[in-house]
Simulated assay, not measured.
Amino acid sequence: MPDSSSFNFPLGLNIAPSAPTNSKNPVEDSWQSQAIAEFGIAGRIWEASYLLEQYLQPPGSSSFVFDPPCSIFPPPNPPTSSITSPWPSISSPFASSSLSTFPPQTIIELGAGTGFTSLNLASLLRPEDIIVLTDLDEVVPLMEERTACRSSDSLDGQGGQVLVRGLAWGEGREDQLSLPEGREGKITHLICSDLVYFPFLYPPLLRTLLALTDPNPSKIEIIIAYKVRSLFKETPFWDSLGEEFSLVPVLADGKRFGASDGLGIFVVKRREMGKKREEEVGFEELLFLSMEI
């Protein structure tokens, strides 16, 4: 496997700051350009992150009706209070009564890069919730910088706790994340955004997903946002993932969310012991049907 220092600066790298599909202006163009220069691929906000940002919101705060809804938040109730995120365009009304009985969430993002996904989400969480940004050791300074900016911009200390950790996939370091006391073995969610691109990284990514879900395989949920770039090269990852995990595509108002832009979000869970992939009908169809590529 190539040295990790080359992951973010592949030969011929030529990328520019990104923007949401409904906007012509890159998000904070100046810092994103600088981050790309210093951290390469890790310094860019990739397209699936914007789609995932829309999904990772409490029920009732989006213009879409998602199926399945985002399980990081409690089921919808008539809002009795409102918390406004410091991030533009995100508002998160929810019922305080439902929050009081909803267990603390422990969320790990793999390949967090700029932290765009996790830091947006953190602003919507409760103080008892924890989100951990992880990436290669050489990307830790970028994650720390963006986390510090988020902390200085947040309103009245609202939001979940944010931690930053170095984590190279497939090296057996998943048990060294140094989670706060009482949170070890209590991960609730893994978040993956635009991680399926280099085929040589598929095996270590899968090993890390297996390692992180081992402590509680029936309860840990993985949320994967994905953009199709080369289906021929990417299909082996989904094929291998499906051997150990079941996947459900996220629908918005009854349609595959992001399909028109070649994007998608999948809710993923470890299979029950002894249940094989062949028992599910139309695996590839489940993944890619109606995705316009």
Results as ranks from 00 to 15, higher is better:
residue 1 M to C: 08
residue 2 P to W: 12
residue 3 D to H: 15
residue 4 S to R: 06
residue 11 L to C: 04
residue 13 L to G: 04
residue 15 I to D: 09
residue 17 P to L: 03
residue 18 S to H: 05
residue 22 N to Y: 14
residue 23 S to K: 07
residue 33 S to R: 13
residue 36 I to C: 09
residue 36 I to R: 02
residue 37 A to Y: 06
residue 53 E to Y: 02
residue 54 Q to F: 01
residue 56 L to P: 01
residue 68 P to G: 07
residue 69 P to Y: 15
residue 76 P to F: 11
residue 86 P to E: 08
residue 87 W to P: 00
residue 88 P to A: 10
residue 89 S to D: 13
residue 90 I to P: 00
residue 93 P to M: 14
residue 97 S to A: 15
residue 102 F to R: 03
residue 107 I to C: 05
residue 110 L to A: 06
residue 110 L to V: 09
residue 111 G to H: 06
residue 112 A to H: 08
residue 114 T to Q: 02
residue 118 S to H: 02
residue 122 A to M: 09
residue 122 A to D: 04
residue 126 R to Y: 06
residue 129 D to M: 06
residue 129 D to H: 12
residue 131 I to L: 14
residue 138 E to P: 00
residue 145 E to G: 03
residue 149 C to Q: 14
residue 150 R to M: 12
residue 153 D to F: 11
residue 158 Q to Y: 08
residue 161 Q to E: 15
residue 163 L to Q: 11
residue 168 A to T: 15
residue 169 W to R: 04
residue 183 R to C: 14
residue 189 H to P: 00
residue 199 P to A: 10
residue 200 F to S: 07
residue 202 Y to P: 01
residue 207 R to F: 08
residue 211 A to M: 04
residue 213 T to Y: 08
residue 225 A to P: 00
residue 226 Y to P: 01
residue 229 R to C: 13
residue 230 S to K: 11
residue 231 L to R: 13
residue 236 P to A: 11
residue 242 G to N: 04
residue 245 F to Q: 02
residue 246 S to Y: 12
residue 247 L to E: 02
residue 250 V to I: 15
residue 251 L to T: 07
residue 252 A to I: 11
residue 268 V to Q: 01
residue 269 K to P: 00
residue 269 K to F: 05
residue 269 K to W: 02
residue 271 R to W: 11
residue 275 K to A: 15
residue 280 E to K: 09
residue 282 G to M: 10
residue 284 E to M: 13
residue 285 E to W: 10
residue 287 L to R: 03
residue 288 F to E: 01
residue 292 E to P: 00
